[in-house]
Design a protein around this nucleic acid. Structure first.
Lengths: 253, 253
DNA sequence: CCATCTTTGTGCATGCATTCACAAAGACAT
DNA sequence: ATGTCTTTGTGAATGCATGCACAAAGATGG
């Protein structure tokens, strides 16, 4: 942090909970869709459904922003879009650099939703001299040597790292030294950064592994249920009594 | 869920907390790196540092898996790699399909970390007939028409959606109907799925918006700190007393 | 102007996650 | 063996997030 304080002692920070912040973009997206359909107002129930959360949570989330709803009616869509945008800092322009223009970096550069909401790809940077000058998504790739200058000239404070894992920490260090204070990391590494720099991580392989865990659990439970059912059937045969009714019926694989 | 029960009543599920599951891949990656360097054992402190968490959390996480450590020594790296892999279901092969082979889909297909850990790209699927047959990452793209057959023939239970937002729900429905029970969604939409199907979402633009929020907050606090410092300076001038020592020194921008 | 009906905003209870702090376990030296 | 030293595993305390349930607010119709 620029002041050298890690956590300033709760001075006035209106303190929107992190979990709420993470949902605001979701609401914003749903609201934008409503706005495009010229829907004037929306109830917490409807909006919650569109955003995939429950309505009590949504109302509590909004309560942190202030009282923007009208009882008996709902929320004014346009007004709420504006308030959330402002709260998220999307009413200003955020220049972003993407470092590492491989498959993923190129995909990110081409990603439309990037530009749509206050974010602007200010530069693409790659370590491969052969890439330099080549346009990707209409933007010429620049060489890593100029990283610091690019950051400073464009006033960039958000950087996206899409390099191989091995290069990520080094790139990160240079970004931070040049003044970047928020980093979105796609490389499969834990980045270490000084206090005051935010890092968010997007990791393909981790997401898949979490899915695999649940997938396995589901398979295991199913097998277990089959065993239970068989045991129950055997017991029934044994004692002459039926199953206790609490065992779900399952088709043996 | 195949049994029709949404939450089976805590029957035996050894109940590893979700937050822990989400960290296991992180530990696994750190452990794999250690394993490659032939490090035999590691303490919770060291491993925690490598994974970017604190050691108490790590120990508690591992305690859900069982007692695999040795007091006074630490954890056996190889053994732990095996245990976590098994717990995550990575000792088996998970065929995966990627639907939507645009920039992002292609990047995912080319992503190495994909194949490395138990996951195998079984097929690439796209709605564009012009793509059909074209190889991406060495795998020929197949047409959406054959989606159901592909899923069934390959026994796929995990699907990755990298289509535009508009197509995502429809693709999702077809995947689920064909037997997929875990979905990794890159499209910026809320997917609705029946009970028993897991969805995880990766959303670029949401991550950036969260960063923007914090970035703005930092800027705001800095400005506020400047104001405070100025006020304090003014007050000091006024009363002849110095600042109270609790106000951080700041360089005015 | 009053009654009714809808929908918000929030106090409260509950449950999950994190962190602390320490006793118990074991290695290792003497 | 015995004592020391390291490091785990875990009870207990705290803090955060979720969801319920309802009172208060306001719209709307008669």
């Amino acid at each position: 942090m620029a002041t050298g304080r890690t956590h300033r002692p709760a001075t006035r920070s209106r303190g929107i909970p992190e979990a709420t912040v993470a949902r605001l973009p979701l609401y914003l997206r749903a609201l934008t869709a409503l706005s495009e359909r010229s829907v004037p107002t929306v109830s917490s129930e409807e909006l919650a459904a569109a955003a995939g959360v429950n309505s009590a949570k949504l109302r509590k989330d909004f309560s942190y922003l202030g009282s923007y709803g009208t009882r008996g009616v709902g929320y004014d869509v346009e007004y709420l879009v504006y308030q959330i945008s402002r709260e998220l800092g999307l009413t200003q322009d955020w220049p972003v650099v993407i470092v590492g223009i491989g498959n993923l970096g190129a995909a990110l550069a081409n990603y439309g939703g990037f530009a749509s909401r206050g974010f602007r790809v200010a530069a693409l940077i790659d370590a491969d001299p052969a890439m330099a000058g080549k346009p990707v998504a209409g933007i010429p790739v620049q060489h890593t040597d100029d990283l610091e200058k690019i950051i400073k000239d464009n006033g960039v404070s958000i950087g996206v790292i899409a390099t191989p894992a091995g290069a990520a920490q080094q790139v990160c260090d240079r970004l931070v030294a040049a003044g970047v204070t928020s980093i979105l990391n796609f490389a499969p590494t834990v980045l270490s950064v000084p206090d005051g720099v935010d890092v968010r991580k997007v990791d393909l392989s981790i997401e898949l592994q979490i899915l695999a865990f649940h997938e396995q659990r589901k398979a295991g439970e199913e097998a277990e249920a089959v065993l239970e059912a068989e045991a129950a059937a055997a017991a029934a045969k044994e004692t002459g009594k039926g199953p206790d009714g609490d065992v779900p019926a399952v088709m043996p694989a």
